[in-house]
Amino acid sequence: MTQGLYEIIKNDALTSTVYKMVIKGDTSAITAPGQFVNLKLEGKFLRRPISICDYDDTSITLVYKVVGEGTEQMAEMKAGEVIDVLVGLGNGYSLDKCGEKPLFIGGGVGIPPLYNLCKKLIKAGKTCTVILGFNNADEIFLEDDFKALGANVIVTTVDGSYGTKGFVTDAMKDINYTYFFTCGPMPMFKAIESTAVTSGQYSFEERMGCGFGACMGCSCKTKYGNKRICKDGPVLEREEIIW
């Protein structure tokens, strides 16, 4: 974990509620895709944990949804502003168990942390299939980005206004995969848990205090003992999760 001041390079709307912020600075503390950063916002006491969508040697891309006062404030920030960030938090996804045909399942704002993971596994020569679940066509983001990586992308919408009508699990049934990675809302996780035919990794969300393992604010019970979502997670393996 490192703390630093990061300059906002851009902060653009991708949909009416989802934004893409790129910040510039040291990324050496990031050790795996699926990790997150914790942002200090003016006038807010606690930091805001936001998953890392993508990163390179000098920049971090955050794709976030406006859901409350903190993210509203983030959406107002402009290029050139400087933000205090803790970088390299959480365990992230582990890449070594996924076989040749990993499946990525993202629901809504759970999609971003899968992006850099998919990028890395495509680079490693894997055949990647990505299911992106939304409520409707207006909510869609990152579809073209995943396609540009070379992934086979399937979009599902609950109302059928784009792609496959239904839930991500409706699309899962027809796919041949060796492993899965997912991030999204709890109802989606439960549906995946009853549909998935392989091992996999789930990335969880929880209300956090510190984000780096000190306060025990985000603890959960697993088959391997108590874990902190912020430090021992947010990614848990399918085999250890107690539903």
Binding site: K44, F45, L46, E206, R207, M208, G209, C215, M216, G217, C218, S219, C220, K221, N226
Partner: peptide
């Protein structure tokens, strides 16, 4: 002790509330 169920944390103006429950 595992402590209390989550959420255990709430933000406030100039502070926070915790109910970790002595984990």
């Amino acid at each position: 002790r595992f402590g209390n169920p989550t959420p255990r944390i709430a933000e406030c103006d100039s502070g926070m509330i915790n109910a970790v429950g002595l984990q």
